[in-house]
Computed example of a mutant assay.
Amino acid sequence: MLSALQTPGTSASPVERRRHHRMKVVLLGRYMLPNRMEYPCQTIDISPGGVHLAAPAKARPGERVIAYLDHLGRIEGTCVRTTMEGFAMTITATSRKREKFTAQLTWLANREELGLPEDRRYDRVVPRNPRSILTLEDESEHVARIIDISLSGAAFSSDLDLPVGTPLRIGSTPALIVRRFDGGYAAQFRFPLSADLLDENLEL
């Protein structure tokens, strides 16, 4: 479980939050609200001074938030506003930690921009039953074949012509098309699956 919320000695101001350039870097993670409940999350954009999270449970402006993000580790700060997808928060850090944070973000942003191989932190499994139903934004349903699944996404084949960026549900799991390849698509889940669910008997 994430460590308990603590009130740090300093906090980032709204002015500081705007000093930093926001980068479109997608990272999976988990966060904890003051009620000590944990939830999965995904970054929409991030800077050394703040982050916009897609999150199932929204923090209220002024609430403290602790999050753990892939590649970056623990961050904490204060919710500054809610959004349609989740909420935006400041990131409280020392100057030294912020410099390290900036270097990590720059590397991650360049990796995505250059199309370098993804860091597959999660193992992929082939489901015993590959058949699944895709539901598009207009609620139309289409049969697809799941190629493999990880905690963060799935690869599937379909006769549909789906552009990158298409939102959909794979079974009941919300996802987004992030890549096309010969014979199918790669989709990233809006929120990562629980590790104890990932086995060959999983039906999305």
Rank of each mutant, 00 (worst) to 15 (best):
M1T: 13
M1A: 08
L5N: 07
Q6C: 08
Q6N: 07
T7W: 05
T10L: 13
V15E: 15
E16I: 11
E16L: 07
R19P: 00
R19A: 15
R19F: 12
R19C: 11
H20E: 07
H20L: 08
H20G: 14
H21L: 13
R22T: 08
M23G: 01
K24R: 15
V25E: 03
V26G: 06
L27P: 03
G29S: 04
G29Y: 02
G29V: 02
G29A: 03
R30A: 12
R30E: 13
P34D: 11
M37Q: 15
C41R: 04
I44A: 09
D45F: 09
V51F: 01
H52T: 08
L53N: 01
L53T: 02
A54F: 06
P56F: 01
P56R: 08
R60C: 01
E63R: 11
E63L: 11
I66K: 09
Y68F: 15
D70W: 04
H71R: 06
L72D: 08
L72G: 01
G77M: 02
M84F: 14
F87V: 06
A88K: 07
M89V: 08
T94F: 06
S95T: 11
R98F: 07
E99R: 10
K100R: 10
A103N: 14
L108M: 11
A109Y: 10
A109K: 00
E118H: 14
R120F: 07
R121G: 08
Y122K: 05
D123H: 14
D123F: 13
N129C: 10
N129I: 14
P130W: 00
I133D: 10
L134F: 05
L134R: 00
T135M: 10
L136F: 09
D138T: 04
S140F: 05
E141W: 06
E141T: 09
H142A: 04
I146Y: 02
I147Q: 11
D148V: 02
D148S: 07
S150L: 09
L151M: 10
S152M: 05
G153F: 03
A154P: 04
A154R: 04
S157H: 11
S158K: 09
D161G: 11
G165L: 07
P167L: 05
L168I: 08
L168T: 03
R169T: 06
I170T: 02
I170R: 01
T173N: 12
P174W: 00
P174G: 05
V178W: 00
R179A: 10
R180Q: 13
D182E: 15
D182G: 12
Y185D: 13
A187D: 08
Q188G: 03
Q188A: 15
R190I: 02
F191D: 00
F191T: 00
L193G: 02
A195Q: 15
L197Q: 13
L198N: 05
N201H: 12
N201F: 07
